[in-house]
Simulated scan of single mutants.
Amino acid sequence: MSAHILAVHLSPVHEFSKQRFGCITLLADLGVEGDTHCGETVQHRSRVARDPTQPNLRQVHLLQSELLAALSAQGHAVRPGDIGENVTTRDIDLLALPTDTELHLGPDAVVRITGLRNPCVQIDRFQPGLMAAVLDRSPEGELIRKAGVMAVVLRGGVVSDQDPIEIRLPAGAHTPLRPV
């Protein structure tokens, strides 16, 4: 099967998990309409406290459903939306994509991947041991973050469960994802 959206979510308040909807609307340069993280500048509380004028590079959080299956195999009960993602994907290795990859979501929307989600302490408050389960180490000892990717909205549109995802890699040399 080709890459597609499994589920979409949003939350109008700062809560860890997001509620599932049949569709969400992405707004260009802002994020998910009605979501607490929607805006041109940073909306995550810790980042607002540091500098509220920073650009919002975390408008949309995408998470691969394959991570949820791996977490389940480790004994964690995590459903789509539980980790706070807006878009749960299937059949796409989000973590292997380079920075600036464009994802065409459904018929109209386009997002550009800005980097990796850096999991915070809230993940262990949601479920003890989950932080360790979404982190790993490479053979060289580098930290591997598996909690999805962050993106900005280039072109808005309605995004629904089961919509296809088209991947457009950036031209030129590819830059590996880093936390944003």
Rank of each mutant, 00 (worst) to 15 (best):
N118A: 14
P52R: 08
V121T: 14
E66M: 07
T88H: 07
V121N: 14
H76E: 03
L116P: 01
F126L: 15
L130G: 02
L62I: 06
R90Y: 10
I92N: 03
L94Q: 01
E66D: 15
D82G: 03
A133E: 05
N86W: 10
T41F: 09
L116D: 00
Q74G: 09
L71G: 07
P55D: 07
D82Y: 03
I83L: 15
N118M: 15
Q59N: 03
V87D: 06
A132V: 09
Q127G: 10
L105M: 01
V60F: 02
G106E: 06
A70M: 12
G75R: 08
D91K: 12
R58T: 01
G129E: 08
E85T: 08
R117F: 03
Q122P: 07
D108G: 05
R90V: 13
T99G: 04
R47H: 11
A132H: 11
A49C: 02
R58E: 07
P128V: 02
L71I: 07
L67Y: 11
D124E: 07
D51V: 00
R47K: 12
E85Y: 05
P128I: 05
Q54T: 03
Q122R: 15
L67F: 10
T114Y: 00
L103H: 05
R90G: 12
A73I: 04
H76M: 00
V110Q: 02
P55E: 11
A69K: 12
P80A: 14
P119S: 06
Q122D: 15
C120A: 13
Q64N: 15
V110M: 02
H76A: 04
H76Q: 00
G81Y: 03
R79T: 11
Q64T: 12
D51Q: 10
P107F: 10
T53Y: 07
D124K: 04
I123Y: 11
L57W: 09
G115W: 06
L57Y: 08
R125T: 12
L105T: 02
P80Q: 12
A70T: 14
R112G: 00
R90C: 13
S46Q: 13
L62G: 03
H76D: 00
R79I: 09
V111R: 04
R112C: 11
T88D: 10
P119H: 01
V87K: 05
Q122H: 14
L63K: 04
A109T: 01
Q64M: 13
A132P: 04
T88Q: 09
Q74L: 12
D100N: 14
P55S: 06
P107A: 15
N56V: 01
T99C: 00
L62E: 03
Q43H: 00
E40D: 05
L62H: 02
T89M: 06
D51M: 05
V110I: 11
D124Q: 01
H76V: 00
R50C: 10
T53C: 10
C38G: 10
T89I: 00
V60P: 04
R45D: 14
Q43W: 05
A77T: 13
A70V: 11
C38V: 11
L67Q: 10
L67P: 08
I83D: 09
S46Y: 14
H61K: 03
A132M: 11
S72I: 10
D108Q: 12
A73M: 10
L57V: 08
S46W: 14
D93P: 08
